[in-house]
Amino acid sequence: MLSYQSRAALDVLIPSTPCVLSPHSQLSKMSYYFTILSPTDTPIFNIAFGTSKGGGDGIARFRFPDTAQYMNQFIIHSSLDIVEEAQWTNGGMYLKHIDTYPPATAYISAFLTPSGARFLLLHQPPQLPSSGTSGSLGSSSLLGSSASTTRASSSSVAANPTSPQTEEAIRQFMNEIYESYVKTAMSPFYKQGMEIKSPVFRTRVTAAGKKWL
């Protein structure tokens, strides 16, 4: 399992996103911003958290902390057009990674409920100390060392936003949230399109984040 993961991670990793991988575990932690949009595009739930896997502390550290709050919302909303396009190309509810916003190195994954709510997850790898100047050559040399490979595999979800492992982990995360979302929506005191204030739901989302991401 471990070796498969690391190998698969490498395949995807090397050509596309070299700058993401870091030999320092603290730096391979992702920051996440998760939003649920009602069918009428109103945000009804937001939460920011960080990687918990592989010893992460679960705290979000966005690259531009001052503006992250609005920027994340903005980036997520700007991907809605793509969600709309993608939703008809795919019979499934999980659309995987659908959009990237390069200026903030933000990746967006989407999940649609049949009732039209959209779960959007923005994931942002941490900034490298060398502020993204390391080329693919540097990365592959890093990968060459066995220590970093092991590191990458133990936290592969965090390490690469577009790898199959990440997509699978996000699928699990989304499915779990979908289940909680349905339960919350079934509460007689919840009205469709209303902001989800339920502390229980927030706890469940946090737990799902901890479990899968």
Binding site: K183, S187, F189, Y190, S198
Partner: peptide
């Protein structure tokens, strides 16, 4: 009371 969360 399944699924129920009281109004906050």
């Amino acid at each position: 009371a399944d699924f129920v969360e009281l109004p906050d």
